[in-house]
Design a protein around this nucleic acid. Sequence first.
RNA 1: GCCGAGAUAGCUCAGGGGUAGAGCAUCCCGCUCGUAACGGGAAGGUCGUGGGUUCAAUUCCCAUUCUCGGCUCCA
Length: 644
Amino acid sequence: MNVKISLPDGSVREYPQGVKGSEIASSISEGLARVALAIEVNGEVRDLARPIDQDASVKILTWNDKGGKSTFWHSSAHLLAEALEALYPGVKFGIGPAIDNGFYYDVDLGDRPFGEEDLAAIEAKMKELAKKENIYSRRDVSKAEAMEFFTKKGDEYKTELITDLKDGSITFYEQGNFTDLCKGPHIPNTGFIKAVKLLNVAGAYWRGNEKNKMLKRIYGITFPKQKELEEYLHVLEEAKKRDHRKLGKELELFAFSEKVGMGLPLWLPKGTILRERLEQFLRKAQVRAGYDPVVTPHIGSKSLYVTSGHYEKYGKDSFQPIHTPDEGEEFLLKPMNCPHHCEIYKTKPRSYRDLPVRLAEFGTVYRYEQSGELHGLTRVRGFTQDDAHIFCRPDQVKEEFIKVIDLVLLVFRSLGFENYTAQVSLRDPENKVKYIGEDHLWERAEREIQEAADERGLQTVAVQGEAAFYGPKLDFMVKDALGRSWQLGTIQVDYQLPQRFELEYVGSDNQKHRPVMIHRAPFGSLERFVAVLIEHCAGNFPLWLAPDQIAVLPISERFNDYAKLVYDKLKEQDIRGILDDRDEKIGRKIRDAETKKIPYMLIVGEKEVAEEKVAVRKHGQGDQGSVLLEEFIGKFRTECAAPN
RNA sequence: GCCGAGAUAGCUCAGGGGUAGAGCAUCCCGCUCGUAACGGGAAGGUCGUGGGUUCAAUUCCCAUUCUCGGCUCCA
């Protein structure tokens, strides 16, 4: 009997029943068979060696497929385990999955001291074992048999896992001398793994539960070609160079002080310019889009947050209330701007004609993040949101959403983030009780968010169960220059706060109605955004943002007067920059300006003085030749205008 | 918060039971210079903080703070 196999190109071929993925691959082309790692059968990734008994649509997976990569890395985790077992007899294993970039294995090495120094030896062992081209073979085992195997081995983690599995659906995979509980799939043999790098070791709780024992998690990555590993390591190195914590220090953008407190960034003068430029840019765009700027205090009465519900949900895990000398007064550091904005909404009765009301504030909020979670500017305890709340009628949600999407995209485009996607976060349909708000409003809002995203041509993924408890949301992810994804802006629909604050408007029917609230922040937080921007452009900010746009460099002290004249002329035009009149050689001055990543250098010497010119040098590009100073200023002013 | 590693000059880092060292930055002197580091000199450190062991601690031990790598969490 034959089975009909349909291929991704739409063609259908017949094969004898029980045909293997590897045979299908060979029948398509020998080249494909050589690089085939796994096969997707009706959407499920499987081993190439597993027989196919029924009609199916299949796709041969290679390194270029996501499923191929994850299979490859999962198999690499097994190879790591095999190497560990060879080098550390008696080692116990937790889990070893593939992750976005590589794989890890959680292991219990007992009391043995173990650190990153040990990784090289394991790596060598892995390479040695890989060369053997051991086959990953799958075998069904009964629960009892599986239990017996790991009990005998003394691996209590595996036996715990087996306890939770159903008899009849348990499989082992074996390669070389290593056997693991695993549902697969795997690549055909270890020989595909040509390049191995173990990256780091970290603690990880067994099953992610802090009550459990902490295992050692060994992270690694592998590739089918040595060259690909080298490229990957190069990207890692590049990422290190671009680390915003490093550049933030070098370029004097921000700093932290133990005395001020962890997670509380200090913005230095140059960083402040950057930040304020971003603020001004968005402020302008928001005024154009019909937002009203507001300002609210950094603290608020505890009762404000009791009303909003934040106190109940986060109060205990937050900065503790501030007490005044007078009894009974309690204030909280503002963790959110929305309660304040709700109170602004309530300062006067609102008509349906007034809506939407859009209140915007660069509001600094304070949240008690766990100490281990703090990280540069991306995770801090005090940060400024480019926050705004749109109070609108239910029938305006979609239109407002579209407007917000436009604003977010303007921000991304203006800052050079060309690659972005969006996640539509929906309710968990199985568990509607978790959420607040009427069913029909949710359904409508979820539909309208999706429609709004589609109308603007956004590439979206919908994820169920990811909504906030108060409403569905749209989260934006950007890819930076190194291909890393960051979550930035967010737009969220909220039914809860209008209800809690009893917000109302009078409708055309002369009845009171409840507005819908939209929270939105295109940057997310200024701190996080600046961090991402630094890493995206490696500290080479676009001209309109650069803290120092120009360095004026006299060739020698003899030309300092002219240099000062040039510098003053630039200042008059609001051009930011420095005058380097140090007693140094021009090569040195250029080098320093290049290191500081200043976009333009104006070099002035004998020739320039005589002709009222400046010799222009661009950062990273070198000498651009001389032009008249006036001419340069004219061009520069056009070039440094903020986008809009 | 939890596990692990670390903290030495403004920065990057070396050293190690007998009260510290380099390069860069800083300051001074000389040079007056044409597109990525001019030469010489000086100054600069309670070796994160607090305890303990020791004749002696920056070094060993304990605690603590902060930083880093993860885990967990994230309005």
